[in-house]
Structure formats: structure tokens, C-alpha cells
Simulated scan of single mutants.
Amino acid sequence: MRMGRLANLFFWEINDPLRVLVTAVGTFVIGLIFQHSLLVSLGQVGTVSQMAEGLHSMTGLVLVRAATSSNLWVVATFFVVVLTALAFRAGIERGYEAVVFSLPYSRAGVFCVKLVATLLMSVVILLVPVVLLTAVNLADVPRFDLSVLLGDRFLGLTIVLLAGLFYVVSIATLLATALRSMLMALVLAFPVLILPYLLGVNLPPRNFLFDVWGTLTILTADFSLSRFITEKILLYGFIVPGAAVAASLLMILGRDVR
């Protein structure tokens, strides 16, 4: 019964009209940027017909360059921050969040549902264009088949992208729960998260997104995900975001809904 109530809350969250609109617009815009980056990278690098396990060697370089470009991640960060602020602050400022917490839901349950819904919508914004446009643009590459999308290298790239999204969502969630205004959460979270791209400094998520270039494009027969998952990706992609999420949950549990 409890899981059923949380499932109803989850579907209510992902069907919020404003967040659905932001997700749809974000997916379209990211698709345009990724397509441009992909075509530019294809023109500069090209592709090869020899098959590496999972990705062609040059094709892998093309995809990594396009999927980790600064332009794409700055715009994706904007949409993710908006989604996070809407999830954790809009209901409070509109007054209906108190009603949700008056229902038989635990605060931790409501928080987890909001976080999962935000992560899911963020994944849609980024990964749907990447997967679809990769298939469309590379379908005429010699010997292209589903292994390009299902191989170890593409899986590694997907893990990096998910880690980057988790980092962005976790920091935006921390600021949205710490600040008492949706506007302040937007104004502060977006500059903080894109600062590494604007200044070119070695801070997350820029640092581990860019470090993945060489790892994914090396043509070796013994490629494995264990070689690819570095300490930097574990730290900034999972441990730091996990700590930020835990701090956000503690703040939610320790104060009134406001």
C-alpha cells in the first residue's frame, strides 16, 4: 500500500505540466546542440570502418567530443537546475507542498520521489538525444550495428554522462533545499555549476567529463569498465553527489515545510 501511494506521487511528479514542458524543450534544445557538435566532430575527425569492441576508435572520439562539449553541458545544466528548483521549491512557494506532507507520506519518501523524478527527467533531456542522434548519424558507417550502442565503451560513456547529471542534480538539490527561494536557488545554482566551464578550471563535473576522452577512445582488445572507472569519477560522480543528497535529506527532515 505504501509503495502504491509513493508510485502515485511519482506519477504526479513526472506529469507536472511545467516540468513536462521544461523536459520537452530541454530535450529538443540539447538535441540541436548535440547534432551540431556531432557534425562538427565528424567533419574534423571522421570515422573508420574497423570495429573496436563497442565503438569504432574514431567514432568513439567523435561521440565523446560531442557528448562532453562545454556548450552542451552548460545548456543541459540550465534545464536540470530549472527542473530541480521546480521540484523542490515551486510546491512550497505555491502552497500545495504542505498539503502533500499532510498526506500519509514520510518526508524521506517525498524527497526520494522528487529526486528520482528529477533524475529521470534529466536523463531524458540528455540521453534521449544522444542515443537517437548517434543511431541516426552513424547508421551509414560500415559495419554499424547495435554493438555500437551496447558495447563497453558506449556503456562507459553513458556512466560518465549519468555521473555528470547526478552531480548537477545533487548540487542543485542541496541549494534548493538550503535556500528559501526558488529564484535564489536558480540564480545561485546555475552560475556555481557552470563556473568550471566558463573559467576552464579543473573542477567537477568538467574535470572528469573531459578526462574520459582518452580512456574511451583507446583501441585495445582488453578494454574493461574497471580500467575506465577512475577515482575521480567515483569521487565527483557518486560520493560527493551522494553526500550532497544526504545533506539535503537531513535538512528536509529537520525543519518545517517552507
Rank of each mutant, 00 (worst) to 15 (best):
223 F>N: 03
150 L>T: 15
135 A>D: 11
60 G>V: 12
187 V>P: 02
113 V>W: 01
176 A>G: 06
232 K>A: 09
165 L>G: 10
152 D>A: 14
170 S>I: 09
39 L>S: 13
114 K>F: 01
239 I>V: 14
142 P>V: 10
173 T>M: 02
72 L>H: 07
77 T>H: 06
157 L>M: 12
126 L>E: 06
12 W>T: 15
169 V>T: 11
44 Q>S: 13
81 V>C: 08
131 V>F: 14
89 R>E: 08
143 R>V: 12
152 D>H: 13
53 E>M: 12
191 P>V: 11
157 L>D: 01
54 G>A: 12
111 F>Y: 14
1 M>C: 03
167 Y>K: 09
215 T>K: 09
224 S>R: 10
33 I>V: 14
176 A>S: 15
228 F>V: 11
5 R>K: 11
88 F>G: 02
116 V>I: 14
122 S>E: 12
245 V>T: 13
10 F>N: 09
192 V>D: 03
180 R>G: 04
22 V>R: 04
184 M>W: 06
73 W>I: 10
73 W>P: 01
35 Q>T: 13
249 L>P: 01
219 L>Y: 09
173 T>Q: 04
94 R>M: 06
215 T>P: 08
92 I>R: 00
111 F>C: 08
23 T>M: 15
163 A>Q: 08
9 L>S: 07
53 E>V: 13
145 D>W: 05
238 F>M: 04
66 A>W: 06
183 L>E: 05
244 A>G: 01
98 A>I: 01
53 E>D: 15
104 P>D: 09
225 L>M: 14
210 F>Y: 05
154 F>C: 07
159 I>V: 15
235 L>A: 11
28 F>R: 09
160 V>F: 07
114 K>N: 11
140 D>T: 15
42 L>I: 14
160 V>H: 08
42 L>R: 07
199 L>R: 12
41 S>A: 15
94 R>T: 05
247 A>W: 03
131 V>P: 00
42 L>W: 10
172 A>L: 03
81 V>W: 02
94 R>I: 00
229 I>A: 08
211 D>T: 07
105 Y>T: 02
236 Y>E: 04
84 T>N: 12
208 F>T: 04
195 L>P: 05
254 G>Q: 01
232 K>V: 05
129 P>H: 11
168 V>S: 03
96 Y>G: 00
172 A>M: 04
201 V>R: 10
159 I>G: 11
71 N>E: 09
202 N>K: 15
85 A>L: 02
155 L>V: 14
86 L>Y: 04
6 L>C: 04
195 L>G: 08
8 N>K: 10
249 L>F: 05
162 L>Q: 06
156 G>S: 12
169 V>D: 07
241 P>L: 06
219 L>E: 09
80 V>W: 00
6 L>N: 03
32 L>P: 00
41 S>K: 13
122 S>W: 04
4 G>T: 06
213 W>S: 13
189 A>P: 03
239 I>N: 07
182 M>N: 02
123 V>N: 10
198 L>Q: 12
50 Q>G: 04
21 L>H: 03
254 G>I: 00
244 A>H: 01
97 E>L: 01
40 V>L: 13
168 V>Q: 08
171 I>C: 06
201 V>G: 09
142 P>L: 09
77 T>D: 01
118 T>H: 02
83 L>P: 00
54 G>Q: 01
24 A>H: 07
146 L>E: 10
92 I>W: 00
84 T>Q: 12
182 M>T: 05
181 S>N: 12
237 G>H: 01
66 A>V: 10
244 A>M: 11
